[in-house]
Design a protein around this nucleic acid. Sequence first.
DNA 1: TCTGGGGTCCTAGGACCC
DNA 2: TCTGGGGTCCTAGGACCC
Length: 426
Amino acid sequence: MADRAFALVDGNSFYCSCEEVFDPTLAGRPVIVLSNNDGCAVARNRFARRWIGMGDPYFKIRDLCERKNISVFSSNYTLYGDMSARMNTIYRDFATGEVEVYSIDESFLSVSLVSPDERVAFGRDLRATVLRWTGIPTCVGVGPTKTLAKLANHLAKKNDELAGVCDLTSAAARDRWLPRVPVGDVWGIGGAAQAKLSRIGVETAADLRDMPARLARSLMTVVGEKTVFELQGLSCLDLEVLAPQRKGCAVTRSFSSKVTDLPDMLEAVATHATRGAEKLRRNGLETGHISVFMHTSRFEAGPACSASRTVHLPETSADTLDLVRAAQAGARAIFREGFRYAKAGIVMDDLVPAGSAPRPLFEQRDRARSEALMEAIDTINGRFGRGAITPAAAGIRRDWQTKFEMRSPRYTTRVDELPSARARGL
DNA sequence: TCTGGGGTCCTAGGACCC
DNA sequence: TCTGGGGTCCTAGGACCC
């Protein structure tokens, strides 16, 4: 049995690249994609990077974008999710199914069966195939642990001479590269850990690898200790080919304009609960309680307020009407007049598989009827688009609705939004 | 004038990730 | 005017019990 090896593949400026695939006029031009509500820049292509910082609020850079002729898009998660699925199909071919989908644009592949001297060629072939079949440019990092694969991917992105593929399989390669990586760029080392490490003179990935594991544990808990082992080449994190059952589910949104009255708040909370119930049903899960929260803006002077309330259900449920009712009851209990609310949301945790929880002796509602109704609603919304049917409480789309003013078409998932092509000179 | 000890379970909050 | 959303994991500390 060969030693273990992992590859991490990710899409370069993934959201921007998705937009560029379907709009050839963007080629060679700066492009950014905004977060929900057109709030912040969350993706920048390589031409936009010199002007736009990650997370820059849009209202602060709007003029700059105009001056520099930067193309700006609202997030189009439907499109990005579909492109992501296409890429993972290719990865599964390359890694005989041994693929962990880590995020919308990153996947770990097992490459244990690829001999060490062929791993760079494997990476180049994978990149070329993904580019040809989806139009998305990628980088590939290879290593004996997931943390090293991640680090290799980071190096592939930052160093043009690597041509998009970096292999840290050999100890010699690690000795060459790890001293060049700031410790804060290591997967799992955030701001707090970086500050602690800096105080004891640990500044690079190589320093972290060479520090005593026990000291790492005392500074950064067992998570930091594992990171040290992983940098040494001792694999502590396995590939998770089957997505573990999710434990929680949240739907939260900032309002596009501040909410000050109860009817608007109730409508927003009902909309979030509706969406939450859909997510539960799609995952075959139920919840026994739902929490509601609302708060004012942390950037705004004036009276501040942050409140939350958990409401228990008589029995576990994924029924939209149950969840809307409970969420609104919670919202009524915590809503206070006189505040300019900036955000509200619902959170559900302790999720259980549908039908697995013990039922009360005397059922309070007709389960079969509820399930039939929800199935009908999901079918209709599946065919005609989300929101074709919603509970009346989720309302009629008022001012608080999240903004997506610059969203591109859903090219790959909606027949009425397919890209069109014109042939010239025939 | 004065403190038990040890176990489990739950929750809140911190840290990190994309 | 305008500053994202959705996860996971770990630990400390309180409540409770015997």
